[in-house]
Design a binder for these strands. Structure first.
Lengths: 167, 167
DNA sequence: AGCTGATTTGCAAATGGTTTGCGTTGACTT
DNA sequence: AAGTCAACGCAAACCATTTGCAAATCAGCT
């Protein structure tokens, strides 16, 4: 699953957050504001859709940030609640910056052919998790939900018999 | 994420399917009915919850079925629509036998502490995917949905201050 | 500004799940 | 019974991710 970052339909929410605000959050949690850290956060700011570690690494090619450093930082940032991890079922972690304060809960609709991604605001009905938790005696219930399908362009290509991968 | 198969609350749907019926499905699609294949299907029959390749391999220790053979067969079976793959976000594939004919669509509620799994019948509201597809010009929209939380036992253990992992 | 201790980084090696190349075996057709 | 090709076992390759360790860097303090 490859995929670029530039089918932008609107500016990413995240980029509205200045880098300084992000580093401030680091300081709050007494985390050091290092070069690699800032570079990673800056890459995340510019992407509205989930980014893989490899993509971050590639984006930082000029600065030459180590992959291990990226992996370690994503863990740290996730533990701090600054980024959220998404899984599209291909075994590759994808990350998105979480906007401070506001409810950033959302899901994605991914084209299985060309990997185009659409952010989805819709979610499960209100109270769904609560009911589920109650029914099965669970607490702290959360969910992972992602949608997959063929985007407009790809489904057209498929139906007109153009070159395509077997499903 | 470890986890046994034996918190059975009811007999797995799948085991109701005799092995002979499963091999018949192989024959239909002109797939060879080999020893390893039957052994794998038999393991799947006995498990109501998703099983990892490693677990299948372990269950077949006596017969000594190669791991690569298991991986290859799961692919084949998935392509044939005989098994379904689930992802719990830990990068490990889990498989469940799909009952012939009947709608076997379901999700899971997984305890993040002890890995206990509950099968969930509830799903998104009727028409949800259709609406989503229409709104974004997609076709063939499907979804992956899994729930995570603390099971009864584990959340009790946590609140009484017993030994626990930091969240 | 310089010092110091703890965090963080880079590099290289190790993990762990999954895939693949290849020669051999064995299931099914004729 | 013989021939053919899918399927198998084994070993090596892949790829995302993790980890050990010594050197570099950051933050607070003097």
């Amino acid at each position: 699953m490859k995929g670029g970052c530039c089918q932008h339909q609107h500016l990413p929410r995240a980029i509205q957050q200045p880098l300084s605000e992000l580093t401030a959050r680091l300081k709050e949690k007494s985390r050091k504001i290092t070069g690699p850290r800032q570079a990673i956060l800056d890459v995340l700011r510019r992407h509205q859709h989930p980014v893989t570690n490899k993509e971050i690494h590639a984006a930082l090619a000029s600065e030459g940030c180590d992959l291990a450093t990226i992996y370690r930082n994503m863990h740290t940032l996730a533990a701090m609640g600054m980024v959220q991890r998404f899984d599209f079922g291909d075994g590759i972690a994808r990350w998105e910056l979480i906007a401070e304060g506001e409810d950033s809960h959302h899901h994605h609709l991914v084209c299985t052919q060309c990997s185009m991604i659409v952010e989805i605001e819709d979610c499960l009905p209100e109270g769904f998790e609560k009911a589920l938790a109650a029914r099965h005696g669970f607490t702290n219930v959360t969910h992972k939900l992602e949608f997959f399908g063929l985007c407009n362009r790809c489904s057209r290509a498929a139906s007109t018999g153009a070159t395509m991968t077997v499903p």
